[in-house]
Simulated assay, not measured.
Amino acid sequence: MVGYNNLLQDKELLKKFEKHSKIAGVIFLLLGLVGIFYPVIMSLTAAYFVAFLFIFSGLTFGYHTWQTDKKDWLGWLKAFIYLLTGILVTIFPVPGVAALGIILAIYFFMDGFASFALSSQMKGQKYNWLIILNGILSIILGVIFLVYWPFGSLVLVGLFVGISMFFDGIVLLSMSSVVKKLEDEDSSNDSNA
């Protein structure tokens, strides 16, 4: 809460937050819509992004090994594996998307079971039903990914990334709106004083 209170007290920071949240929110909304309406493009983009991360990691690890111990064959092996994985996903992005699909399925199952575990600890709490609902939805999403894997991953990965980005955009725009209202209230209070 200290960060939030500091944000409310610093008017210049508040103006920057409002402006940049609005810009980022619009960008996320647009990217989300691309993912929702063109999920295959978003899935392939996600695969290429992961490929880039692997290639960058391989180059970085190779540089590190070169600078620290040129005879470290495990360091070179790790750099090679990163590079090879990144290059393979770049050349063959559809299997990369399928791999992302199975990773997301595992994530959703783990998230669902974690929600159920949290729910059992929160028995009797007012919003426990939301935790249970989150767990049920996560399990359903995991099942959907498994049922349609690997070929459905080409659509599902992009669709769910798009939906996530779309809602992130809504959250950022909402936060920008709240901050704008706070600024307006503060300025009207200052003029009345």
Rank of each mutant, 00 (worst) to 15 (best):
I41F: 06
Y38R: 03
L7R: 07
E18C: 09
L59A: 14
F92P: 06
A24W: 09
S176R: 05
A117S: 07
H20S: 14
K123Y: 04
I170G: 03
F37S: 08
T85E: 13
M122C: 01
K15I: 10
V171W: 05
Q125I: 02
V2M: 06
A193N: 06
F113T: 04
I131Y: 01
Y127D: 14
D72P: 07
F61D: 13
L77E: 08
V97T: 06
D168N: 14
A193L: 15
K126S: 10
I139R: 01
H64S: 12
A117H: 11
T45E: 01
T60V: 14
W66A: 13
K16M: 01
V157A: 02
L83D: 01
A99Y: 03
Y38K: 11
V147N: 04
G58N: 04
K71F: 06
L84C: 03
F145M: 10
D190E: 13
T45V: 09
P39H: 06
V94P: 07
V178D: 08
A193C: 05
F56S: 13
L88F: 14
N5R: 09
G135E: 00
I163G: 02
V97D: 11
W129D: 04
S174H: 07
T68M: 04
F108V: 00
I27A: 14
L173D: 00
Y38V: 07
Y107R: 12
V157R: 01
T85P: 05
V157T: 05
L137R: 00
L182S: 00
V143W: 02
F54S: 08
L33G: 07
L8C: 10
S115R: 02
S153F: 05
K22F: 10
P150W: 00
A114P: 03
G62Q: 12
H20K: 11
A105T: 06
F61W: 07
D10W: 12
F167S: 06
K70G: 06
L29H: 00
V155W: 12
L14R: 11
K19W: 02
L14K: 15
F160V: 02
V178M: 05
H20R: 08
G58K: 04
K180S: 13
G101T: 05
W73C: 00
L84H: 08
L172S: 05
F151P: 09
F151L: 14
I27Q: 11
P39I: 04
K19M: 13
K15W: 08
S57H: 10
G101V: 11
L130S: 09
L33Y: 09
L88W: 08
Q67H: 12
G86E: 08
K19H: 13
L118P: 03
E12L: 14
D10F: 04
D111W: 08
K126F: 15
K78R: 15
Q121V: 04
I103R: 08
